[in-house]
């Protein structure tokens, strides 16, 4: 590394700057030239192999020799996922939700896909993870996390609710009861002891809410003795519900769950998955 001060016989470009600076006219190293050539060849191969350029005359494009398409690659990928899911999905077809629950591996699978289904179809009213979505009437739809079920909380009941939808009814009492009577009943309900007033039986509340005020799952009537409230839990809120009813025309409380079977939005398997997923909230 010693004789670097003259050109040593190597040709220069001929330009001289600052009296003594000149450029060598050396060839680039061989490996570099090989790399350059290989890259150029690679470009051509790549262009021909994959779809690369438009054909303006036919309003289409050159499809490439490999026949590769982005959608084809995606389909190949999803088919891998479908294959993994296939063995579970095949089993689900002929199983009842209760049978799925009995199989821990299937339950695990179903709750995973159930999370997505719930987010897409249920969370709008029931809230993320079924925690309930509050609005001015109390909740848009019941909380699914607790142990209070209007229409029953076993796996078949939940499955039935999802398939057929639910629509509770309570007649408005503002024309039937006096303000004082509504006030008495509302106070009794707020205290959690509806049967403490004789009005509860006399005015026919027991027909729907049961003699003990604990509600009837067959009708979807609320349990008035517990701590879980479907609508506003304040005294004013309770009075409003008694006066205006539920699903009884303008001004009444709204409580409508659509039938997912009638809507045709979800497949049978998906409704089973949701039933298991919702059931597992509290179990």
């Amino acid at each position: 590394m010693s004789d670097k001060h003259d050109a040593g016989g190597v040709p220069t470009t001929g330009h001289v700057w600052d009296d003594d600076l000149a450029d060598f006219a050396n060839q680039p190293p061989k490996w570099w030239m090989l790399g350059l050539t290989a890259s150029a060849i690679w470009c051509v191969v790549y262009f021909l192999y994959y779809p690369s350029f438009g054909l303006s005359s036919t309003q289409t494009f050159f499809k490439g020799l490999a026949g590769w398409t982005a959608i084809g690659e995606m389909n190949a990928d999803t088919s891998v996922v479908d294959e993994v899911r296939g063995k579970y999905e095949a089993k689900l077809k002929d199983m009842t939700p209760a049978a799925i629950l009995a199989d821990s591996e299937l339950t695990e699978y179903v709750t995973r896909s159930g999370k997505v289904l719930f987010g897409d179809n249920c969370a709008a009213c029931h809230g993320t993870n079924g925690v309930g979505a509050a609005d001015k009437q109390g909740f848009i739809a019941p909380i699914l996390r607790d142990d209070d079920w209007l229409y029953g909380g076993n796996i078949e009941d939940i499955h039935t609710s999802i398939m057929g939808g639910r629509q509770g009814v309570m007649t408005p009492h503002k024309d039937v009861l006096s303000a004082a009577e509504i006030d008495t009943l509302a106070n009794a309900v707020a205290a959690g002891t509806p049967t403490s007033t004789p009005l509860f039986a006399e005015k026919g509340c027991t027909v729907c809410h049961g003699a003990d005020g604990k509600g009837l799952a067959a009708m979807g009537s609320a349990n008035l003795t517990d701590s879980v409230w479907r609508f506003e839990s304040s005294l004013e809120g309770i009075k409003y519900t008694i006066a205006n009813g539920v699903n009884a025309g303008p001004g009444s409380r709204d409580a409508v769950m659509p039938s997912f079977q009638a809507a045709g939005k979800l497949s049978d398997a998906e409704m089973k998955k949701l039933a298991v997923y919702v059931y597992k909230f509290g179990k």
């Binding site: 993320t128 993870n129 925690v131 607790d146 142990d147 349990n223 517990d226 701590s227 879980v228 509290g282």
Partner: peptide, 11 residues
């Protein structure tokens, strides 16, 4: 975490 807790029917 969601919900942090649930109020049950018996309070």
């Amino acid at each position: 975490r969601q919900p942090l807790f649930v109020m049950m029917s018996d309070g």
